[in-house]
Simulated assay, not measured.
Amino acid sequence: MKYTPALAFSLALALLSPTLASAQSAVALAGILGGKALLVVNGGAPRGVGTGESHQGVKVLSVGKEEAVVEIDGTRRSLRLGEAPVSVGSASAGKRVVLAADSRGHFINTGQINGQHMQYVVDTGASSVAIGKTDADRMGLKYLQGQPMRLSTANGVAQGWRIRLDSVRIGDVEVFGIDAVVTPQPMPYVLLGNSFLGQFQMTRTNDQMVLEKRN
């Protein structure tokens, strides 16, 4: 297996993160094993799948050095090492996401901000999306052009920046023009607060949360 930091990161997400949605296929490429693609389907265990073979409805069409082309329900998609899972879906695609809580009761998964990969945690107590400076730099967000603001942190008062995100995507659902705050200190996750969550009808039952996009 070709071992890279991206591979280690993908495997960690595959084994620790909850499934995005039971009504759609979420597929990630965790590695290349010989001539086989190491696929993670709906948060399950990685499985080596060769060209022409299928696993849980996902057919591998070709395998390259760092990418694989797959077919799901007649749709071709390219998967690359280290990228967020690709969701291909049902009639509710683009409108509905189902999240499952981890052992601590947190809803953690991967998505995209302005087309760039991010790992988030749902935070219903946060008024807006919050992004650490390290992630903001990696995603190329021009936060220094945003509105300066004072933030209360564990180390006292610090300067943050209020910005507007072009898009936030989780699963097959994408929302545009979302208010966010960039904090001066790094954070382990992007906090998905109410500037994003307010775009959805949110229902929680035990360890499952359903986000249904409002019209």
Rank of each mutant, 00 (worst) to 15 (best):
K59P: 14
D135F: 03
A93Q: 12
M202L: 15
L192D: 03
R150P: 05
G57H: 11
F9W: 07
G156D: 05
A154G: 11
P188V: 06
E212M: 12
V58L: 03
G50R: 09
Q116N: 15
A30P: 13
G198Y: 07
P148D: 11
T205I: 08
A21I: 09
G105L: 03
V63Y: 02
G160C: 09
F176G: 03
Q24F: 05
H106C: 01
S10P: 08
G198L: 06
A8L: 06
A8Q: 10
A136I: 04
A21R: 05
L151S: 11
I178S: 01
P18I: 02
N42P: 04
V121A: 11
L165A: 07
V63S: 08
A30Y: 06
P184Y: 14
T110P: 00
G132A: 15
P5M: 15
R162Q: 14
A126N: 15
N109E: 08
Q159G: 12
A23G: 10
E66H: 08
L141F: 03
I178H: 01
P46G: 03
Y189W: 09
S25L: 10
Y120R: 01
A23N: 06
R150Y: 14
R169N: 08
V181K: 02
G44A: 10
R80H: 13
N215S: 13
V210W: 06
G50T: 13
S87Y: 09
V121D: 02
P184K: 15
G177D: 15
L15A: 13
D137L: 08
A30T: 07
G64K: 08
A130M: 10
V210T: 07
G74P: 06
T51F: 09
P85S: 13
G156N: 05
K36L: 10
V27W: 04
D123E: 09
Q24R: 08
D172W: 02
G111Y: 01
D135P: 03
G82K: 04
V41W: 01
R76E: 07
V181W: 05
T205V: 11
R138K: 13
G198D: 10
Q185D: 11
V97P: 01
T205G: 02
G31D: 15
V173R: 03
S62R: 11
T134A: 12
S54E: 14
V157L: 10
A68E: 07
G115V: 12
L79C: 03
T19H: 00
S78I: 09
E212Y: 14
P186W: 08
N155D: 08
R150E: 13
A30S: 12
R204M: 07
K213W: 12
H117M: 06
G140L: 15
V41H: 00
T110D: 02
V181F: 00
S128L: 11
R80C: 06
N206A: 13
M139D: 08
S62E: 13
E66G: 06
V121M: 13
R164A: 09
M209N: 02
A8C: 15
G89A: 07
V58F: 02
R77Y: 12
V40N: 00
G146T: 09
V210Q: 04
L39W: 07
D207L: 04
V173P: 00
P148L: 14
M202F: 11
T110I: 06
L33D: 04
I131D: 03
E174T: 05
R138F: 13
K133E: 11
S90R: 10
L197G: 00
L81R: 02
D172A: 03
G125H: 10
A91T: 15
K142P: 07
T205C: 01
V210I: 07
V86P: 01
